[in-house]
Amino acid sequence: MLMLLLAGPAWAISDPSEALPDPRQEARAVAIGQQLRCLVCQNESIEESGADLARDLRKIVRTQVAEGRSDADINGWLVARYGNFVRLRPPFNTGTLLLWASPVLAVLIGLGLAIGLRRRTVPPSPLNESERIRLQSLLER
């Protein structure tokens, strides 16, 4: 049973009957498929997934590659049906601006906090005369 589970993902990618006869076309299909999310398992690409739907989508990608359609066309066809969620690399648009900007934002916020906190630590003002005399007497005790 364990062996079966371990072997599962391997079948999906290595089923030779799925591959296109032209290795260049097949390489393109794999490249496209690796950027498409399997809708059933969500964090696998359709090239990695053993799910039925992923197999159907692999077949569609290959049919369209063989028909000579462009990468953008094929991606567009899938996005029209499943939305941008199907793309493992989200596009850069107003909806994903915050997502793409978040690493930069995190660094900027961190820098801002670091600078702000450092500025706050003002060095203590020098001792006045009475404090100096008191310190002296404490040290001499």
Partner: peptide, 12 residues
């Protein structure tokens, strides 16, 4: 064949 379902965007 489950092909029409893909046109509808059915995921399961």
């Amino acid at each position: 064949p489950g092909v029409v379902a893909i046109d509808w965007g059915v995921t399961g």
